[in-house]
Amino acid sequence: VIAMPSVRKYAREKGVDIRLVQGTGKNGRVLKEDIDAFLAGGA
């Protein structure tokens, strides 16, 4: 999974398994917005 360390930390704090999140950034990078969208109700 491609993600910046700050995004990985954010996901950990929110209790999200970053491997389950679909990245929308360049080359499938997971963004902070992707974590929020995942929490809001889905992949």
Rank of each mutant, 00 (worst) to 15 (best):
V16H: 01
T24N: 05
S6V: 08
I2M: 04
R8K: 12
R12N: 15
E33G: 11
K26H: 13
F38D: 02
N27I: 05
G28T: 04
R19I: 07
D36H: 04
A37S: 11
E33D: 11
N27W: 11
A43W: 13
R8E: 12
D17H: 05
L20I: 09
V7P: 03
K9Y: 07
G42L: 11
V21E: 00
V21M: 05
L39H: 05
K9I: 09
E13K: 12
A40G: 10
K32L: 11
V30Q: 02
G23V: 03
V30Y: 01
K26I: 13
G23H: 04
R19F: 08
T24D: 02
G25W: 01
F38Y: 15
E33M: 10
R19N: 13
N27Y: 11
A40P: 05
A11F: 01
I35D: 00
G28D: 04
K26R: 13
S6M: 07
G42N: 15
P5Y: 04
G41H: 14
A43T: 14
V21I: 12
L31F: 07
D36P: 01
V16T: 03
G25T: 03
A37W: 10
V21W: 02
K32T: 07
A43K: 14
E13W: 08
D34G: 00
V16D: 00
V7E: 06
D34L: 01
V7D: 04
G15Q: 07
Y10I: 08
Q22Y: 09
G25N: 02
G41M: 14
G41W: 13
T24P: 01
A40N: 13
F38G: 02
E13H: 09
K26N: 10
R8V: 13
M4R: 15
G28N: 08
I2S: 09
D36F: 03
V7G: 03
A40R: 13
G15N: 09
D34A: 01
T24M: 05
R8T: 08
T24S: 13
M4G: 15
G25M: 02
F38V: 08
Y10Q: 06
L20H: 10
M4T: 15
A3T: 07
K26A: 12
E33L: 08
E33H: 12
D36K: 04
G23P: 09
V30G: 00
L39F: 07
K9P: 01
I2W: 02
I2A: 08
A43F: 14
V1W: 04
M4V: 12
K14Q: 12
P5I: 11
E33R: 15
Y10F: 04
K32I: 13
R12V: 15
V7N: 03
E13A: 12
S6N: 12
E33N: 10
D17L: 05
D17W: 04
K32C: 11
K14D: 01
E13V: 10
F38S: 04
A37E: 10
V16P: 00
V7W: 02
D36I: 06
S6F: 07
I18R: 01
L39C: 07
G23A: 07
G42P: 13
R19M: 11
V30K: 03
G25V: 03
K14R: 11
Y10L: 05
K32P: 05
D17V: 04
L31P: 00
T24A: 03
S6Q: 09
I35V: 10
R29M: 15
A43Y: 13
I18Y: 04
L20G: 06
D36L: 05
T24I: 03
K9H: 10
G15S: 06
R29H: 09
V1T: 10
I35M: 01
I2P: 07
